[in-house]
Amino acid sequence: MLTRGCVTLSLPDQFPAVDVFWQGDLIGPSSGRLRAVVASEYREISQADLLQELARQPDLAAWILQQQQQRIDVLRDRILWLRRPVEHRLVRTLMALDLQAKDRMPEASGIIPLTQRELAGLAGATRENTSTSLNRWSTQGLVELQRRRLRILSHKRLIEVINQSPQPAPTGAAGAAA
């Protein structure tokens, strides 16, 4: 369990970032690599300790299931968004991370502490496409780029990127596979 900070989960040599964890999130056993994007603290809880606590507090199981369900919902949503243009996915990723950062790490004052490579991974985009879009939005004053982090300057104008570009028509399996 992450008790303070923020970490990303990546699959080395495959995906730069597939998930983000914030203070209070449960991180299950995984085969990935965690990177602390800010100074972080965590508790390594053994299965025996967890089972003992579940026997003492059975309603804890409902909370753990709820946490896992929320994570599944987020991942399912990201899969559905893969049909959308890259820039839509980037905007959506930035807006979601901005909300999470403000809610879970308010001391960061709206900073999204992820690298462009990690953002690309979360948005399902290439590093090059991500960099091109972010640099353009930076020039336009929509975002402020810093080393290994960024900040949204205009949420309204960033959302307009989605609203002003053409929406893809609903597609079936053939479209999704294209």
Binding site: M1, T3, G5, V7, G24, P29, S30, S31, G32, R33, L34, R35, A36, V37, V38, A39, S40, E41, Y42, R43, E44, I45, S46, D49, L50, E53, Q57, D59, L60, W63, I64
Partner: peptide, 30 residues
């Protein structure tokens, strides 16, 4: 509420900004 209930379990560990933790639970500095 549940976060508070289990945050005392197990061993507390820290990871510096930029530090990595691999599946084998060995923390390394960036």
């Amino acid at each position: 509420m549940h976060f508070e209930a289990i945050r005392h379990l197990g061993l507390a560990k820290s990871l510096p900004a930029g530090g990595y933790l691999d599946a084998d639970a060995t923390a390394t500095a960036a």
